[in-house]
Design a protein around this nucleic acid. Structure first.
Lengths: 202, 202
DNA sequence: TCGTGTCAACTGACCGGTTGGTTGGGAGTA
DNA sequence: TACTCCCAACCAACCGGTCAGTTGACACGA
């Protein structure tokens, strides 16, 4: 076990991923992370600054891997949703980290990688719509929001409901893919208010 | 300001709701809750036992109000989704508390009120399907999961995506209602695997 | 009306343990 | 020697939880 800064950094990142995913930022304990990584607590501060920055490093790494492993596919949104589902099933940590991030992170500080990634997705969606590959009854943001939401439907479900007939994985996956497919089906769906913004009312 | 146990309990519950909703269980501070409620920290332990039980009390109260204010309507799922959306928009705290609950309480202790409520919903869905009011291409659990997921689509969206064209509230509401409506549209959507469970595969 | 006893409601101060964060020095390597 | 990597030990602040003691309302007897 020779000295290796990179290796230590990586082990720390890995242990932190487990800890943060399970307990969140406020619930995570740096001592536990250091112990799980088989090194001293001081290493965290030497390599990552502090607890918050360690979380950022962990989350950024997970996001990068995630974006890399699940490439966006505007023309085939049902397929994309299915691949998102698979990824969430195989790596539940990523979604948990994202949820902690959304809940615990103070407003404002967004990950640039995510912002630009979303921007690219929206542009591709708009392009696909102009080409007629995708229907136009939803705007790109609406489309993306619905797809992401449906993909995580099973993963972000309340545990009380999860007990009831969770079905097997294949069936759950099919539900996700099928739902997105139905969302894209042609045909007006009753009255549709203007897309452009209007005065708000209850 | 006479002494009033019920009033104190209520103020504690309210202050705790704000604190827990914002910081979660691990992030919440009992001193802060007591101070916000204008009473002593010891009252929390006298009335609720401990921090965790205080959270349970807060969450149960929120859930009870929620279930009361948004009655289930199996024959009109799009309308139900719309009302869920409204509730989440008007009271973001409830969803945040539910998310904290899901993340920070991994053990099996489920809220009986939620379990039985879900049971009732599933039965109503099944009944509506047998009556032909609802299509049968999704099982009751699948239906409920999708509806709940879509209703919270905007509320549980990543902040990075939220920046991009969040649209006005009416439009967002319409998107939710419309999406559920499309899910219920008749017609087979390509190949459908059996509903009954089969051997798992990747 | 006054004095007194009683008890729930409430409080200030404290405790044991924990937490994020720091530091001085030692081991390994070139 | 000089430089990097690493850690045991330490610290100040903080946190959940407890407890002995105080306060206020009210019933009751005279």
């Amino acid at each position: 076990m020779a000295r290796d800064a990179d290796r230590t950094r990586k082990r720390l990142l890995e242990a932190a991923g487990v800890e943060f995913s399970a307990l969140g930022i406020a619930g995570a304990r740096v001592d536990r992370i250091a112990e799980a990584a088989g090194c001293n607590k001081a290493m965290i501060y030497a390599y990552f600054g502090n607890k918050d920055q360690l979380f950022d490093a962990v989350f950024s790494a997970h996001v990068a891997t995630f974006l890399d492993e699940v490439p966006f596919d505007a023309p085939d949104l049902p397929g994309y949703a299915g691949r998102l589902f698979d990824r969430y099933e195989d790596h539940p940590d990523t979604l948990r980290l994202a949820t902690w991030y959304r809940l615990e992170r103070p407003r404002g500080a967004s990950l640039q990688a995510v912002v630009s990634s979303n921007q690219g997705k929206l542009e591709k969606l708009e392009h696909a719509q102009r080409e007629g590959v995708l229907p136009g009854h939803y705007t790109p943001v609406e489309l993306l929001t619905l797809v992401l939401s449906i993909s995580t439907a099973w993963a972000s479900m309340t545990p009380e409901l999860g007990v009831n007939a969770p079905a097997d994985r294949d069936r759950r996956r099919h539900t996700v893919v099928d739902a997105v497919r139905r969302l894209l089906a042609d045909g007006e769906s009753a009255s549709a208010p203007p897309v452009t913004l209007s005065g708000a009312s209850s």
